[in-house]
Design a protein around this nucleic acid. Structure first.
Lengths: 222, 222
DNA sequence: ATGTGCTGGATTGTCGACAATATTAAAGAA
DNA sequence: TTCTTTAATATTGTCGACAATCCAGCACAT
């Protein structure tokens, strides 16, 4: 499951993904200036394709640009993270609702298989480590894709998740609610299987809300 | 109320707004190729700033790019419009909820004043003509801004509304449900004033859903 | 001492030219 | 005739250089 779904055939595409990764992982720290000349030299390319990559990063919201001044990696604020989680709760709720109406038996089967795999891996290594990243993302991606709503896919998978991952990396958050989350996932799949859109939305929103409240708790502990 | 909120100091900024307007209004028809050389000549600029504008248009989703081939204005499909309306319903519901919690008395007063102005103008010219564009947008923008959620503002005001406006222009839709919409607006404001987030979200979602169903009806009539 | 205006340096914005790629059409073989 | 191959052409992608703009530091006047 490549997060960088785009084909990275052209230079701006590749550099965009690399820079996004570097920013999300915190390798390029928040608030730091983006020097075009320096980055162009580092990646061994000219400034033209680099500028396009920067332009795309700005469109996604990972960096801020000021004319004739330059670009900076966005500063992190807890409030903005909460804002983003509200958006995510809203959108993923809708994704679950549409998925309940549009996913066929085969797609639901794949979803179930994913959860089984999660459960197995959780029994194996205690479950704590697994759930924060790829596993959880897999589950959510399948539902979002299952909604069949391309605009939702673009917003959630291409833009929002990277932002959330960035905050996660910066604040050093680990979710620690693996078992509870797995149970919630099962309930959501059951609702989708029954094609109960209302319930699927309700459960998904509660699930994301719990994750947000978990984040809020961790922030207040700092 | 300038829709192009950004300062258009730099050339790409200006051209981005001009092109977006041309695409939304249908002056550049859907599916048509975007020739860099031709547009650069028309706007009297070089290809470099034009490419940045095109890049931004692609990020917003108004055009599609294929490497080494070129950019085309997106094709319109009724299904995608419905998809977008689902997203809008979801996001504006959340905006109304947060606005109910965060808007102060003064902001609510401005909202009321806007509605009064709408009512007056509706009595004046029969109301049909007014409600599709600026007036309705004004009301929704105030609530979205009132949510205090910057990410919501970006998604709804900067990206989504232009898409919807584009579809409206292409399909030649007029809403024709002015009086009903005004009544719904009043109910939403009342909920916000009472700081009833649940109700505000419920009403806003119903309001947007009604708009979507209106659109679905018009589509099926074609 | 503080605020104002200027100058030097560095960075971003823009441009025209060249290289790489895809599409089209024609030409040849089955 | 139809499919494949190939060359021509036009378009996009990339580059290095130049122009425009901003910022820091300093001199100077108040």
């Amino acid at each position: 499951m490549s997060i960088c779904a785009d084909q990275l055939r052209t230079i701006p595409e590749r550099v965009f993904c690399q820079l996004r990764e570097a920013i999300v992982e915190g390798e390029i720290p928040p608030g730091s200036r983006i020097s075009e000349a320096e980055l162009a030299a580092r990646y061994g390319i000219s400034r033209a394709p680099l500028r396009e990559a920067i332009s795309r990063l700005a469109a996604v919201g990972l960096i801020e640009r000021r004319p004739n001044v330059g670009a900076r990696v966005i500063e992190l604020s807890a409030d903005q993270l909460i804002d983003i989680f509200h958006v995510r709760e809203s959108l993923e709720g809708t994704a679950a609702r549409q998925a309940a109406l549009r996913m066929d038996a085969e797609a639901v089967g794949r979803l179930r298989a994913t959860l089984d795999e999660h459960a197995a891996r959780m029994r194996q290594d205690g479950g704590q480590a697994y759930f924060q990243e790829a596993g959880d993302v897999d589950f959510h991606y399948q539902i979002i894709q299952g909604s069949g709503n391309h605009y939702l896919v673009k917003l959630l998978c291409h833009d929002l998740y990277h932002l959330i991952r960035m905050y996660r990396c910066q604040f050093g958050m680990r979710s620690k609610r693996g078992p509870a989350a797995l149970e919630e996932h099962h309930a959501i799949v059951a609702a989708i299987e029954r094609h109960d859109g209302d319930l699927a939305e309700l459960l998904m929103r509660a699930h994301v809300r719990a994750s947000r409240e978990n984040v809020e708790r961790m922030i207040s502990e700092i």
